[in-house]
Design a protein around this nucleic acid. Structure first.
Lengths: 71, 71
DNA sequence: ACATAATGACAAATATATATTGCATAAAGA
DNA sequence: TCTTTATGCAATATATATTTGTCATTATGT
């Protein structure tokens, strides 16, 4: 469960001028879930990843493909 | 939770001459999990998707993009 | 300085991904 | 045939993703 911060997700979200709560709303999950994914403390499901991608206009590879560094 | 069959995953697996059980072994999950993902009856976690991708030499987009599922 | 929004952290509860076991069937080989 | 391998299906059990609620802190704005 030791993942890394998802900077790319955070950047894509900010790019759309969305707060974590707003993105969570559009995607249909809780604010905490989005926050934890950005912090790299979560292992989201594929469907959630896809929903985030569609909301932010990005692909899976663009947002979730190996961010291999530590925080 | 009715998803579409993941044909691309099955093709990539067969391309590597792996059975569901063999792929499951390498990825560290049960045979049923792989089978259900291929049947589109499951919503795997990102880490599992990534493990499958690395084992089969594919990216997330190549194996898991655009099988549109409901909710 | 004060207010409010945005985020991080934490715990307990719920939902669901995944494991485990077993059984059924079809295909391929000996 | 007989045996083995591969796959689907189903029930129960476990692990973990996700929710809900609350509080603290850090911006950001007035």
């Amino acid at each position: 469960m030791i993942t890394m911060k998802n900077i790319k997700l955070k950047m894509a979200r900010v790019e759309h001028d969305l707060s974590q709560a707003e993105l969570a709303n559009r995607v249909g999950v809780s604010r905490q879930t989005i926050g934890l994914i950005e912090l790299g403390k979560y292992n989201p499901t594929l469907n959630l990843c896809l929903a985030i991608c569609h909301t932010l206009g990005k692909t899976l590879d663009e947002l979730f493909w190996e961010e291999l560094d530590n925080e």
